[in-house]
């Protein structure tokens, strides 16, 4: 069974300017419609397979992000949406930003852009789905080996 037929998506705003957030939301609405890939935007980390994070990480969101990531069931993939999530972007020099989200959790797909365009984001999510499948089959092989 392929998990990639219907991966659910969780969006978290680590400290973005909102530009990427609304583009993440816009990609679920009729014009771009990621739902045609079986993707549903969920609010619950325990239902989610893909974590889309926007914005760089600050002091206060660090723990929240870690917690959300740890609550998601395995296998899971992380998409960093927007340049801030990739490496801090224009806010990299701010005193409260510690850089991209890869300083806190492992990232699988980086989607740069300010703000990220929905087309690019969908491309990134489709890449993430392929990685998700890979992780899933590795997990199955490990299970068979260990019995």
């Amino acid at each position: 069974m392929q998990i990639s037929k219907s991966p659910w998506l969780l969006h978290y705003d680590a400290s973005s300017c909102n530009g990427c957030d609304i583009e993440v939301l816009a990609s679920t609405t009729p014009r771009f419609d990621v739902e045609r890939f079986g993707i549903i935007n969920t609010g619950n980390p325990k239902h989610a397979d893909i974590l889309v994070v926007t914005g760089g990480v600050n002091n206060q969101t660090r723990m929240v992000l870690k917690q959300l990531y740890s609550q998601m069931p395995d296998p899971k993939v992380v998409v960093a949406a927007g340049i801030c999530a990739c490496d801090g972007g224009i806010f990299k020099e701010c005193y409260n930003i510690s850089g991209g989200i890869d300083t806190v959790i492992p990232v699988d797909v980086y989607v740069p852009g300010c703000a990220v365009r929905p087309e690019a984001l969908i491309d990134g999510i489709v890449k993430a789905i392929a990685i998700l499948d890979e992780k899933r089959s590795k997990q199955l092989i490990m299970k068979q080996k260990t019995g």
Binding site: N58, N59, Q60, Y95, N96, S98
Partner: peptide, 8 residues
């Protein structure tokens, strides 16, 4: 604001 630098 719980900033990483106190009183920036």
């Amino acid at each position: 604001y719980r900033t990483s630098v106190k009183a920036p």
